[in-house]
Design a protein around this nucleic acid. Sequence first.
DNA 1: AAGTCACTCAACCGCTACTTT
DNA 2: TAAAGTAGCGGTTGAGTGACT
Length: 334
Amino acid sequence: MVRPPCCDKEGVKKGPWTPEEDIILVSYIQEHGPGNWKAVPTNTGLLRCSKSCRLRWTNYLRPGIKRGNFTDQEEKMIIHLQALLGNRWAAIAAYLPQRTDNDIKNYWNTYLKKKLKRLETSTSSESCLGHDNFSVSQPIARGQWERRLQTNIDMAKKALSDALSPQKSTSSNNLLLPLESNICSESSFCSTKPTQTQTQSLCYASSADNIARLLKGWMKNKPKGSNGNYSNVTQNSFNIDLAYGGNYETSASSEGMEKGSSTNVEISETFESLFGYESLDSSNSDSTNLFQDESKPEIIGDGEIMPFSLLEKWLLDDGGIQEKVGLSEINYVF
DNA sequence: AAGTCACTCAACCGCTACTTT
DNA sequence: TAAAGTAGCGGTTGAGTGACT
């Protein structure tokens, strides 16, 4: 099979995305929905390959993405899911609301892997379980917890296959895994797949949250050598000055940077008008609700996860076996 | 203050899987 | 059915940044 030359083309831009490019991409997706990535560069005038556009959207601009530190619970889930599923980051990401596979992969590679190795070294030298957050609350005989772990893994696998079997998909809603709901929705953005035009326009607005976040960051970290070329974008682009209420200076002066914090309100207002919803605050439930049926498990309120599957319960059950199992004993795939 | 090192994470690359023709 | 086109995934890279000397 011949490899598509999309990324090898001359004139295809690489490297970090500019806010203008983000805005162009978001506004396009807002109008047309994600998918058909091949058409995105052509229709938007973005000098990016389709893959780059897709990646930018799924890993950064997509609504509902949570950034920053991983919680203990998320960390535990990653560890156990990694042990269970291996390096299938997309599958693991399906269980972690608001996290991207790229994020999880990075977190694993840069932090968790080392942490587990450290733990493994220390536990093997001390030949006892139980340090760190994953300590054993009660000592369990090795054979015993191994059997229990295996049982749980088997149960999880069974639940997984049950949930994925088409016949049971309607009758076993309680077992519905995020994995299942996401497999079909990744490209369609909404889990049920109505015609794209039906849902797209109402679904994408909160991308502005990410954009706003990005712009805030950009205001803070305006590239030193950014020769002001950001205004040199296609005819389809937004005027970045518009986004900052005309107060933004394209030069990377220190005054310009300081304006960053003071223009947040303006940014919010601008996006409010641009994307037609009230707040950019990610805690705003309205904007969150808009995207509940996005490709991540459903979220209620403050990030509480909607009914867990058996597997999820198993993964999260603090009283469950995994808490009692020394991490070094699980077969991690490094 | 300058240089070096270690770390993070956004983005790219290459591959496979899936879909369309 | 095969070939071509496209989307998605996981591994890897490299720019940016902070800590340390």
